[in-house]
Nucleic acid binder design. Structure first.
Length: 922
RNA sequence: GGGCGGAUAGCUCAGUUGGCAGAGCGCCACCUUUACACGGUGGAUGUCGCAGGUUCGAUCCCUGUUCCGCCUACCA
C-alpha cells in the first residue's frame, strides 16, 4: 500500500480555489428547516452592495464562519444567511460621480432613469464582495442571498412603515435636523461625526433700544448667523443683566429689534459674556429656546447652506450687505460681516476657541442644522422593551462591558429622523392629495445655480399625507384623484433594522422564520452598535414580539501596525485579498482569530500573517511526515494499552479539545487559536512526532501498529478541531488521510474522551522534557554538534521519579542522542563531567575533546546566584511570623518544599562548580 | 463636559477565586539531524505607567494621578 505524496511546501492557492468550489457544489452550506439538530443561525451584517471586502469584513466574517463551521460540525441545524444592503447615500454618491464624469446628472436623467442606472451599477459591481467572501471560504447559504431592496425585503419595509404609522410611532413634522448641504439630505443624529476644531469666539455689541449708549455683548462662534437672531438670552438670576429682561436690543446690520429673554437652560453665566444670541433656525439649542419663548424662526441659509437673498430680505438685513453676501457660504460671508462690525465699532474682540463641528459620515462635509419637514420614528416606546431585553438577559452582549454603553444610549435616545432627500432607496409610502394640499408644495431653484439644476421640492408642514401599502385611487377627503407621492426615501438603516426577520420571509410566516428566528448570535463591530444592533432589537421586539438574537458578540476594530485607523486616503490599508494571495486565506483567518482579544483593537501587521503562514506550513509538513510513515499495519488498541508517547499525546489532545471548545463557547477566539497553536506546534510536532520516530522507523517494533493508529487518529482529530479556523488546509490534509465521509466540513467536531486522560503520562513527560532540556543545554554549552553521540548520566532525588526515568530510558537515548547511565549521582565520574541540576534532577554530560568550559562555568554561576536570591526570598517569607501564622497551609508547605529542593540543588551545583574549576585549573 | 477601555520583554499581546511574570514575532549563538530553513536547538531581555492604601503577601483588589485611544455631549 502506498500513501499519497505531498509537496514540501504548502501552496494555498490551488487548494483554496478547488475546495471552495467543491463545498458549494456539494451544498454543504445549504440550510433547511428539515435538517435535524437544534437550530443555530446567524445573519451576516450586510455590507454595502457595491463595496469590496476590507480587512474589517475579513475579521467579522472569519469569526462568524468559525462559529458556523464549529456549530455545523457539532450537528446543529445551521443557517448563515448572507446578503448586502443598498447603502442609499453612499451608492447614490458613487453613481452621481459617474454621471458627472459623463457630463450628466441625476436631475438631467430624472428619477426613474437614475434609479435604473443605479440598478445597473449594482448589477455590475454587486457581486464583487460576494465573490470575495466566497474566496474567504465563508460557509454561508449562498442560495439564500438577500439584498435590502429585494422584493420581499421591500415588502417588509412597507409593512413596517405603515404599521408604525398606524400605531402613531411614525410622524411627519418640521424640526431642525442635521442636514448635509452636499448630499442635500437630512441625516440622523448618529450619522454626524463630531470633530474638534480651532475656532474663534466673536464678542459683538447689541445696543439697547432704550439706551443706545449701552449694549449687551453677546458671544458667538458663527457671527454670520446673527442675521437670523430673534432674541438675546441672559440668565434670569444674573444680577448683571436680569433687569434688562423684557427690554429690546437693536440687532446690528438689520432693521430689526429683538427681545431680551431670561433663559436658565440656555445660558451659562460663566461662559463668554453671559449673554447669548438666539438663532432658532440654525442651532439646536436655540431652536429649543425659541420654542420656550415662542420666538419666530428666521432661516437665512438655504438647503445648500448658502445665504439666501430672499431670506435675508425677510430678516430685514441691510440691503447693501445682503447683496454682498447672498449666495455665499457662511465661511465666506463671515469675514465680510466681521469687517462691517469692526467698522462700526460693534466688534468688541475675537478670541481663540476650541469647538466641535459635525460632519457628514458619508462625505465629511460640515453639516448644518436645517429647518425642514421630515419623517420621524417616535422612539421611546420602542426603546423601552429593547432596554428591558438586555437588562433581563434575554439578549447578552459580549464582552459585557458594552452593555452599559448600550443601555446609556438607549435611555437617552431621541426620535429617529428616517427621511432622506435622495432617490436610491425605499420611497416613503405617503401620498398627498394635490387638491387638499394645494399651496403646500414649494418648488424652488436655488439662486446662483444654472437653470438646468433641478427644482428643490419641499412639501410643507401641514400637508396631510395618506400612508398606505399602495397608491390611493381617490382622496378620502375630497375624492380627488391627483396625488403627489412623497419624494423622500427611507434611511438605509430602517431596512437593515428588519434584517433578522425580513430575510427569513417576514411578513409571511415562513417555516424558515419559525425555525431560525430568533437568531443565535450577532457578530459585529462596535461602530454599528447604535446604527444597527439597537434598531434591530427595537424592531424585532415590535414586530416579532421576540428578540432578534440571543448573543451579540462585539469585536474589535482592525487598525494598522501603528494603531492608526486604516483608510484609503492614508494609504495604510491592508488589502485582505492581497494578503490571501500572498500568505493564504487560512493564515489570514487564523491571524485575525488569534488577535481577537476582547476590549482591544487589533493592530495588524503583515509579519503576524506571515507567522501563521509558517504555522500552516508546519501543519502541512506534520501531515506529510505522517503520510510518509503510515505504510504498514495499524491496530486500534485501548488507549491505556498504548505506548507512553501515544498515551501522552492523547491526553494532551483531549485537554486541547476541552479547552478549544470552552473558549469557543465563551467567544474567546484568541485563546482557542493559541491553544491550537501551542498544541500543534509545541506538543504534537516538537515532541510527539520526535518521540515516535524510532518506533515508526523500525519495522520490527511491536509498538508500530498501535503508534501508526495513534498518529492517524490524533492528526485526523486535530484537523477537525482546527477546521473552523483553517478550513482549506484541514480539508486538504484530511482528504489525504485515511477517513470516512466525503468532506471534513460535515464531520463531527471532536469531543472529549475520558479514556484519553492520563495525568501520570503527562507527569512523566514533564520529567522527560526537563531532562532533555538539560542535556540539550549542556550540548550547546560544550559546543557539541547536534549529531554528536554523547554519554550522559541522569539521576533524580526522588525514587519515584528515578523509576520513571528508568522507564523512559529509550526515549532519553533517542532524544538525548547518545548513551545514558541511570545510576545514582554518587557513582558518577568526578572528572570530565558537566553537571546541571533542576528540581532534584541531575544531568551529567561527559566532556570530551578540547572544549572551553568557561561558558558552562558562567551558566552555573548564574544559576547559583539566581538560586541564592530565591532561597533568600523564601527564607525571608518563612521566617516572617505573620506569614506563617496567616498564609494558607498549602502555600506554606509549597514554599517549604521549594526551599528544600532549592537547597539540595544548590549543594549539587556547588559540587558541580568545584569540579568545573578543577577541570579548568588542571 | 460625561462615560468606557488600554498602559506587562525591542514590537504585538496573554495573564480572575492575590502566593515562583508568559506567548508570538524580532534579536544573539550554533545547526543542511531525510516532515518542515515558511525549519531545529539553546540563549538574552521586564522597578507589570506613576503615587498611595488594603493584605503576611499586590501585575491582579481600592483610591488618586499621568499618558494614549474610543464612545458620547447643545456651553454659545
Amino acid at each position: 500500500m502506498s500513501s499519497p505524496q505531498l509537496d514540501k511546501t504548502y501552496d494555498p492557492k490551488a487548494v483554496e480555489a478547488r475546495w471552495s468550489q467543491v463545498w458549494q457544489e456539494q451544498g454543504y452550506f445549504h440550510a433547511s428547516p428539515t435538517h435535524t439538530g437544534q437550530p443555530y443561525s446567524i445573519v451576516i451584517p450586510p455590507p454595502n452592495v457595491t463595496g469590496s471586502l476590507h480587512v474589517g469584513h475579513a475579521l467579522n466574517h472569519s469569526i462568524q464562519d468559525i462559529l458556523i463551521r464549529w456549530r455545523r460540525m457539532q450537528g446543529r441545524n445551521v443557517l448563515w444567511l448572507p446578503g448586502t444592503d443598498h447603502a442609499g447615500i453612499a451608492t447614490q454618491n458613487v453613481v452621481e460621480k459617474q454621471l458627472m464624469g459623463e457630463g450628466a446628472s441625476r436631475e438631467s436623467l430624472g428619477r426613474e432613469r437614475f434609479i435604473e442606472r443605479v440598478w445597473q451599477w449594482k448589477a455590475t459591481s454587486g457581486d464583487t464582495i460576494i465573490r470575495q467572501q466566497k474566496r474567504l471560504g465563508e460557509s454561508c447559504d449562498w442560495d439564500r442571498l438577500r439584498f435590502t431592496m429585494d422584493e420581499g425585503l421591500s415588502k417588509a419595509v412597507l409593512e413596517v412603515f405603515v404599521r408604525l404609522y398606524e400605531d402613531g410611532l411614525i410622524y411627519r413634522g418640521e424640526r431642525l435636523i442635521n442636514w448635509c448641504p452636499r448630499c442635500l439630505t437630512a441625516l440622523s443624529d448618529i450619522e454626524v461625526e463630531h470633530e474638534d476644531v480651532k475656532g474663534k469666539l466673536y464678542h459683538i455689541r447689541y445696543p439697547l433700544v432704550d439706551d443706545p449708549q449701552t449694549a449687551l455683548i453677546v458671544a458667538t462662534t458663527r457671527p454670520e448667523t446673527m442675521l437670523g437672531d430673534t432674541a438675546v438670552a441672559v440668565h434670569p438670576e444674573d444680577p448683571r443683566y436680569n433687569g434688562l429682561i423684557g427690554k429690546r436690543v437693536r440687532l446690528p446690520l438689520t432693521s430689526r429689534t429683538i427681545p431680551i429673554v431670561g433663559d436658565a437652560i440656555l445660558v451659562d453665566r460663566e461662559f463668554g459674556t453671559g449673554a447669548v444670541k438666539i438663532t432658532p433656525a440654525h442651532d439646536f439649542n436655540d431652536f429649543e429656546a425659541g420654542e420656550r419663548h415662542q420666538l419666530p424662526r428666521l432661516p437665512i441659509l438655504d438647503h445648500q447652506a448658502l445665504l439666501d437673498l430672499d431670506a435675508l430680505n425677510t430678516a430685514g438685513v441691510e440691503s447693501e450687505l445682503s447683496t454682498s453676501i447672498a449666495g455665499l457660504p457662511g465661511s465666506k460671508a463671515r469675514p465680510k460681516i466681521e469687517q462691517v462690525l469692526k467698522d462700526r465699532g460693534l466688534l468688541v474682540n475675537v478670541e481663540d476657541h476650541k469647538m466641535a463641528i459635525g460632519k457628514c459620515y458619508r462625505c465629511k462635509t460640515v453639516v448644518e442644522p436645517y429647518l425642514s419637514p421630515q419623517w420621524f420614528v417616535k422612539i421611546k416606546p420602542l426603546a423601552e422593551p429593547a432596554i428591558t431585553a438586555v437588562e433581563d438577559g434575554r439578549i447578552r452582549i459580549v464582552p459585557e462591558g458594552w452593555t452599559n454603553n448600550y443601555l446609556g444610549w438607549m435611555r437617552e435616545i431621541k426620535d429617529w429622523c428616517i427621511s432622506r432627500q435622495i432617490w436610491w432607496g425605499h420611497q416613503i409610502p405617503a401620498w398627498y392629495c394635490t387638491t387638499c394640499n394645494s399651496g403646500l408644495f414649494l418648488s424652488k431653484v436655488p439662486m446662483g445655480t444654472p437653470v438646468t439644476a433641478h427644482a428643490f421640492l419641499t412639501i410643507l408642514q401641514g400637508a396631510k399625507p395618506i400612508v398606505a401599502r399602495s397608491a390611493p385611487t381617490s382622496c378620502p377627503a375630497c375624492n380627488g384623484t391627483s396625488f403627489l407621492r412623497d419624494p423622500d426615501v427611507l434611511d438605509t438603516w430602517f431596512s437593515s433594522a428588519l434584517w433578522p426577520f425580513s430575510t427569513l420571509g417576514w411578513p409571511e410566516q415562513t417555516v424558515e422564520l419559525k425555525t431560525y428566528y430568533p437568531t443565535s448570535t450577532l457578530v459585529t463591530g462596535l461602530d454599528i452598535l447604535f446604527f444597527w444592533v439597537a434598531r434591530m432589537i427595537m424592531m424585532g421586539l415590535k414586530f416579532m414580539d421576540e428578540v432578534p438574537f440571543r448573543d451579540v458578540y462585539i469585536h474589535a476594530l482592525v487598525r494598522d501596525a501603528e494603531g492608526q485607523k486604516m483608510s484609503k486616503s492614508k494609504g495604510n490599508v491592508i488589502d485582505p485579498l492581497h494578503v490571501m494571495e500572498e500568505f493564504g486565506t487560512d493564515a489570514l483567518r487564523f491571524t485575525l482569530a488569534s488577535m481577537a482579544s476582547p476590549g482591544r483593537d487589533i493592530k495588524l501587521a503583515e509579519e503576524r500573517i506571515e507567522g501563521n503562514r509558517n504555522f500552516a506550513n508546519k501543519i502541512w509538513n506534520a501531515a506529510r511526515f505522517s503520510l510518509m510513515n503510515l505504510d504498514g499495519p495499524r491496530t486500534a488498541v485501548a488507549p491505556a494499552d498504548r505506548s507512553f508517547p501515544d498515551r501522552w499525546i492523547l491526553s494532551r489532545l483531549n485537554h486541547t479539545i476541552q479547552l478549544v471548545t470552552s473558549e469557543l463557547e465563551n467567544y474567546r477566539f484568541d485563546r482557542a487559536a493559541n491553544a491550537l497553536y501551542q498544541f500543534i506546534w509545541h506538543e504534537y510536532c516538537d515532541w510527539y512526532l520526535e518521540l515516535i520516530k524510532p518506533t515508526l522507523q523500525n519495522a520490527a517494533s511491536p509498538d508500530a501498529p498501535g503508534t501508526r493508529q495513534t498518529l492517524v487518529e490524533t492528526l485526523e482529530t486535530t484537523m477537525r478541531l482546527l477546521h473552523p479556523f483553517m478550513p482549506f488546509l484541514t480539508e486538504e490534509i484530511w482528504q489525504t488521510l485515511p477517513h470516512q465521509g466525503e468532506s471534513i466540513v460535515i464531520q463531527r467536531y471532536p469531543t472529549s474522551d475520558t479514556a484519553w486522560i492520563a495525568p501520570d503520562m503527562e507527569q512523566r513527560f514533564g520529567l522527560l522534557e526537563q531532562t532533555i532540556g538539560l542535556v540539550r543545554a549542556s550540548r550547546v554549552l560544550l559546543n557539541y554538534p547536534p549529531g554528536q553521540q554523547i554519554t550522559f548520566y541522569v539521576s533524580h532525588n526522588e525514587p519515584q521519579r528515578q523509576r520513571h526515568l528508568e522507564q523512559l530510558q529509550k526515549y532519553l537515548i533517542h532524544l538525548g542522542r547518545g548513551t545514558v547511565d541511570l545510576t545514582p549521582t554518587t557513582t558518577w565520574p568526578t572528572d570530565n563531567l558537566l553537571r546541571l541540576v533542576a528540581e532534584g534532577l541531575s544531568v551529567g554530560i561527559v566532556v570530551t575533546g578540547e572544549v572551553d568550559l568557561n561558558k558552562a562555568l558562567d551558566r552555573i554561576l548564574k544559576e547559583q546566584s539566581e538560586q541564592t536570591k530565591e532561597i533568600g526570598r523564601l527564607e525571608g517569607k518563612l521566617g516572617n511570623q505573620e506569614f506563617v501564622a496567616k498564609a494558607p497551609p498549602e502555600v506554606i508547605t509549597d514554599h517549604q518544599d521549594r526551599l528544600t529542593s532549592l537547597r539540595r540543588d544548590q549543594a549539587m551545583l556547588a559540587n558541580s562548580e568545584q569540579q568545573l574549576r578543577a577541570m579548568l585549573g588542571g
